[in-house]
């Protein structure tokens, strides 16, 4: 992952896609008996990641190496849990609106759009990508992070309401 992040100049989504592709390719090779565990699997994976990065870079002519990891992390900094959910006097607000809707409103807009389209509207990843005019991989990534964020926003609320122990 570190190698991939460096290659992608801190573009976390791109780096994750590369690592996933490499691991899936490795798993396929292993299942097909074309990759032996005696070989240096780590080197093989790093090679696959690097090759795929070069291919994608050449294809997209997209160079983001000047982006610093710190900048990307700052962009993705999580917003604080909505006070509307956790504040002691929030019961009024919470009773007026569904907590899921409140939590959704705390997501970054890009993530929220993906969650709404795929999970609520039952759109496919491809349809969502077409609507948002972004690559399918970006939809997958935003959706995954949006779902995790949503879960983490809702968990304290669920516990406070003693829905869970």
């Amino acid at each position: 992952m570190r190698h991939s992040m460096r290659l992608c100049g801190g573009d976390q989504d791109w780096a994750q896609d590369l690592v996933q592709d490499a691991l899936i390719a490795g798993f396929s090779e292993l299942r097909a008996g074309r990759l032996e565990l005696e070989r240096n699997v780590k080197s093989w994976l790093l090679q696959v990641i690097t090759n795929r990065f070069i291919n994608q870079y050449n294809r997209n002519k997209k160079w983001t190496a000047e982006r610093r990891v710190e900048d990307v992390e700052a962009e993705q900094a999580e917003q604080p849990l909505s006070a509307k959910i956790e504040a002691p006097d929030a019961t009024v607000t919470a009773s007026l609106e569904d907590p899921i809707l409140l939590a959704l409103s705390d997501l970054q807009e890009d993530q929220r759009a993906c969650v709404l389209m795929v999970d609520v509207q039952d759109m496919s990843y491809i349809e969502a990508a077409e609507v948002l005019k972004v690559p399918v991989g970006t939809v997958r990534s935003r959706l995954a992070r949006g779902r995790l964020k949503l879960y983490s926003l809702l968990l304290p609320y669920a516990k406070s309401r003693r829905y869970v122990s």
Binding site: Q16, D17, S141, A144, R145, R147, L148
Partner: peptide, 12 residues
């Protein structure tokens, strides 16, 4: 970290 999108996609 490397499984985030895969687990998400498996969930749907």
């Amino acid at each position: 970290e490397h499984m985030i999108t895969l687990v998400s996609r498996r969930s749907d």
